[in-house]
Amino acid sequence: MILNVDNISVNYGAINALRDISFTLNEGEIVALIGANGAGKSTSLNTVSGLLRPTTGKVEYLGSDITTVTPQAIVNLGIIQVPEGRKIFAKMSVWENLEMGAYTVKDRKVIQERYEMVYQKFPRLKERRNQPGGTLSGGEQQMLAIARGLMAGPKVLLLDEPSMGLSPILVEQIFDIIQEINKTGTSILLVEQNALMALAIADRGYVLDTGRIVLQGDADDLLHNPTVINAYLGGETTD
């Protein structure tokens, strides 16, 4: 188990955003967290990233407790989040965005290698490296956001709604890239509203509803689960 989230609850003031939820991520896996708006998916990721502190429960990374560790120390450990809505630094150029991704990396040589790796994966970013990030199209921005995450050399990549606002073709491209990244040994925790796409590439999945985990299991089983089909896959039966 590379990541173990054990019984965490998170409150925003008086509102319980998460209630005693637990999930795990094994080495090399893709795990999907699916659910509607406000189910607590992003809250879960932000808690893992150290941006939010749970009131109860703990988060473990490779067996050590990281519940009260600062966000930057968590980045240093190799848990990298690609936030919802891409959150590109709009006024900074593409390469400066990538440079920010490698903020915690000290070794210039490693950074150079990562640039090459990232530019090879996303040739468009290389073409546009001197352009302000805000001038890229939505799809390019999502690629930049993922590339920026890769610059840190993640062991665990937390992806928050990478399909948001993208056309179906682009979504497919992004999901191909996610699978590729996973094949190179990065474990991925994927938060999605697009349950069908997410479960199609995931090994396992968890279904969140109003701060609770209501279903969990192998991705294939969830894809055929009647509750999931009714609630998140538009009621169509896949069999």
Binding site: L51, P71, P83, R148, A152
Partner: peptide, 9 residues
């Protein structure tokens, strides 16, 4: 928030 996610203190 995003700066913090990049590891910026």
């Amino acid at each position: 928030k995003t700066a913090a996610l990049m590891g910026v203190d």
